[in-house]
Amino acid sequence: MAEMTQRENIIEVKFLSVFYGQFQALKNVNINVQARKITALIGPSGCGKSTFLRALNRMNDLIEGARTEGQVVFDGKDIFEPDTDLLELRRKVGMVFQRPNPFPLSIFDNVTYGLRVHGQTARGFMEERLFRSLQAVNLWDELQDKLQANALSLTGEQQQRLCLARVLAVEPDVVLMDEPCSALDPTATARIEDLMYQLKEKYTIIIVTHNMQQAARVSDYTGYFLLGELVEFGETDQIFTSPRDRRTEDYVTGRFG
């Protein structure tokens, strides 16, 4: 972490292409992701933004027939190198999914899952991290008395916060969010956005969203994807007020998409 603060770009994506069998889902994408900023990826459905996100922690590896070209340099190393420690990569680059997916276990077991997976099972240590990560997602006050309750009994918003706490518990550097608010109502969405704002002091956040207002509200940088291509990438203000590419302008002004 300390070393990270020195470097401007935490992730450098170079000529990244992803194929699903014959289909090319991502075409030669280049992005530098800044540390401790929120980067939003927007674009119509099927444009490759989720594929891009899932390349960053190599979750695409799980999809049969997926193939990757190019580089993603994280922590000074290309994550596609054969000697990459995938478990460590995924610890450092955590992920929150579109639909809340807490495990059907207790709240305690959910939040400490990553710690147990990585062998950090000392009781005091787990409780400390549990406290800190639930506090970070503003769930501690609500849940401190029912840590043994089944996580599936929580509301949708609480479940999504819990999933975020589960990621934060292993102290990642980067948090990937794949449309994290799409299953939530507007008030819950607003609260999650507030939360992202608090979290960027410590974490780099990359969020995929189909909601342009959300991208405009929360992000520092925005990338617009279309048909597997990164059409434009830049500071959010610039993308939304003076886009350089005609296609971006059509999309952000609502003429397309």
Binding site: R90, R91, M95, Y113, G114, V117, R166
Partner: peptide
């Protein structure tokens, strides 16, 4: 989604099976 959540936290396939899939 349970399996994905577990793998994304850096769990191995076997850990995922043992700690999430079988209990579920």
């Amino acid at each position: 989604s349970y399996r994905e959540g577990s793998i994304a936290l850096g769990a191995t396939r076997w850990q995922t099976v043992r700690m999430v899939v079988l209990p579920a």
